[in-house]
Computed example of a mutant assay.
Amino acid sequence: MTTIRTRWGRLGMPAVAALAVLAAGCGTEHVGAPGAPGAAGAPSPTSAGAGAVPGGAADFPCPGETPTGTPAPSSRSAAPTGPPLDHYAENHAFKAPLPLHGRYRCDGLAAVRRIEGALEPVRAGRRADPETIRGALVGLGYPAGKVKVQPGGDFLVDATGLCLSGSTSGGRTTVEAFAGYADGTGCEEPRGGH
């Protein structure tokens, strides 16, 4: 009986250690946690990362914007406001784009107005094919290699530290500016997860 206890004790320790490592792994790094991607003090993948970090830059009214107290967050920023009922929101938080703050937010709003002004006549004239949209965006000064346009009129511009996505489908041209993603994929929405 003594040898069975000793043998199980020796065999059980590596199993317990392996379970502890697995339990501490996936799902424990949260966006905004110290040392996590996108956290204050953590290196950022984009030059606008400092503008995307909460507390990194103060928000203020931008030129052409009516001061309304706290600026409204982008409709793309899907940050949960309360505890999730399940882990779906937590497990998909890596897909939530980082908001812009401070000067970067003002740069983003200005870029949104420029792109909407250039693409709305294209959409209204029913010429919103990928090459026409790409030509309008390149005409605004964005490098052709940083502009991606889908056949349905959706587009993505990586403006070096500023991400601009939008669509010319539907009743109007829509454009949103954001600072990339916390996992460091730049302007491309991450496809992985755990």
Rank of each mutant, 00 (worst) to 15 (best):
Lys146Trp: 07
Pro83Ile: 09
Pro34Thr: 08
Thr68Asp: 10
Val31Asp: 13
Gly108Trp: 01
Ala136Trp: 05
Lys146Asp: 09
Arg123Thr: 00
Thr2Tyr: 07
Asp86Pro: 12
Asp129Ser: 02
Thr160Ile: 13
Cys187Arg: 02
Gly171Phe: 12
Asn91Cys: 05
Thr28His: 15
Val149Ala: 07
Pro14Ala: 05
Asn91Ile: 05
His101Thr: 06
Glu176Asn: 06
Ala18Ile: 04
Ala124Gly: 01
Arg7Asn: 07
Leu156Tyr: 07
Ser165Glu: 15
Val112Arg: 08
Pro151Arg: 01
Glu116His: 00
Arg10Tyr: 10
Glu120Trp: 00
Gly184Trp: 03
Gly82His: 14
Cys26Ala: 09
Ser165Leu: 08
Leu162Ile: 05
Gly102Asp: 01
Ala96Tyr: 11
Cys163Ser: 01
Pro73Met: 08
Gly117Val: 03
Gly141Ser: 03
Ala179Met: 01
Ile133Asn: 04
Lys146Ser: 10
Gly145Leu: 06
Ser74Glu: 09
Gly161Tyr: 02
Gly166Val: 01
Thr46Gln: 11
Glu29Thr: 14
Ser167Val: 02
Thr6Asp: 10
Ala48Pro: 14
Ala57Gln: 06
Ala42Asn: 11
Ala96Asp: 15
Ala36Lys: 12
Thr174Trp: 00
Ser47Gln: 14
Pro14Arg: 06
Phe178Val: 09
Asp107Pro: 09
Ala159Thr: 06
Pro67Gln: 03
Val147Thr: 01
Ala18Pro: 15
Pro63Asp: 05
Ala72Pro: 14
Pro43His: 13
Cys26Ser: 13
Arg123Lys: 03
Cys106Asp: 03
Ala48Trp: 15
Pro80Lys: 15
Ala124Phe: 01
Cys62Asn: 03
Leu85Asn: 14
Pro130Asp: 03
Ala128Pro: 01
Val138Leu: 08
Ala110Tyr: 04
Pro67Arg: 00
Ala79Tyr: 10
Asp59Ile: 03
Val16Arg: 10
Glu65Ser: 11
Val149Arg: 00
Pro37Leu: 08
Met13Trp: 14
Gly117Asp: 05
Arg134Gln: 13
Gly161Val: 03
Ala72Val: 15
Glu90His: 10
Ala39Gly: 09
Thr66Met: 12
Asp158Met: 04
Arg127Val: 02
Pro61Ala: 12
Ala79Ser: 12
Glu131Gly: 07
Leu109Asn: 03
